[in-house]
C-alpha cells in the first residue's frame, strides 16, 4: 500500500495531463459519480458537515489500525473532490492522517474549492478527517 505522500503525487501527475478546465472538471464530475456512496444509515445528523452551499456526509471506521473513510455530498463537484480526498487519505494510519500536509489540492488547481467563501463543507471535512486521525490514534 502506497503512502499518503505517494498518493498525492499520483493525483498531481494525473491532473497534469489535463489541458483545460473542462477536461479537469469533467474528470472531477466522473469521479463524483463513481464515488462509492456512503451507507444510507451513515447519512445521519452527526455525520453531516453543513456548508452554506453544499452538504457533506463523512463516516470513519477504524480497522486493523487503519482508518476507512466513506463520504457523500449533494453537489457532484464537491463529491469529486471528496473522492480525491478519500483516495489520498483512506486506508492510512491515524497518525499519518493526523500529521499529513494536504498540498495536492493546491497543486492541481482546485484551491479555490477550499476557500472559506465557497462554504461547501470541504474545509470542515478535511478538519474532521484529521480529527478522526487524532481521535483514533488513542485506539489504534
Amino acid at each position: 500500500m502506497s503512502s499518503i505522500k505517494e498518493r498525492q503525487e499520483e493525483v498531481v501527475e494525473e491532473f497534469s495531463m489535463f489541458e483545460d478546465w473542462m477536461d479537469k472538471y469533467e474528470y472531477l464530475i466522473s469521479l463524483g459519480k463513481e464515488l462509492p456512496l456512503i451507507e444510507e444509515s451513515k447519512k445521519v445528523e452527526e455525520n453531516i458537515i453543513k456548508g452554506c452551499q453544499s452538504r457533506v456526509w463523512l463516516d470513519a471506521q477504524l480497522q486493523d489500525g487503519k482508518i476507512y473513510f466513506t463520504a457523500d455530498s449533494d453537489a457532484i463537484i464537491t463529491k469529486g473532490i471528496i473522492a480525491l480526498m478519500i483516495r489520498v487519505l483512506s486506508e492510512s494510519s491515524p497518525k499519518d492522517i493526523a500529521e499529513t500536509d494536504l498540498h495536492f489540492v493546491d497543486e492541481i488547481g482546485l484551491k479555490e474549492h477550499l476557500s472559506p467563501t465557497r462554504s461547501n463543507g470541504l474545509v470542515s471535512m478535511i478538519k474532521k478527517m484529521k480529527t478522526y486521525g487524532i481521535a483514533f490514534q488513542a485506539k489504534a
Binding site: M22, Y25, I29, Q53, S54, A75, I77, T78
Partner: peptide, 13 residues
C-alpha cells in the same frame, strides 16, 4: 438532478 453549487462553479469558469 443538478445542484446549484455545481452550476455556479462551472458557469464561473
Amino acid at each position: 438532478g443538478i445542484h446549484a453549487y455545481d452550476l455556479g462553479v462551472i458557469m464561473d469558469k
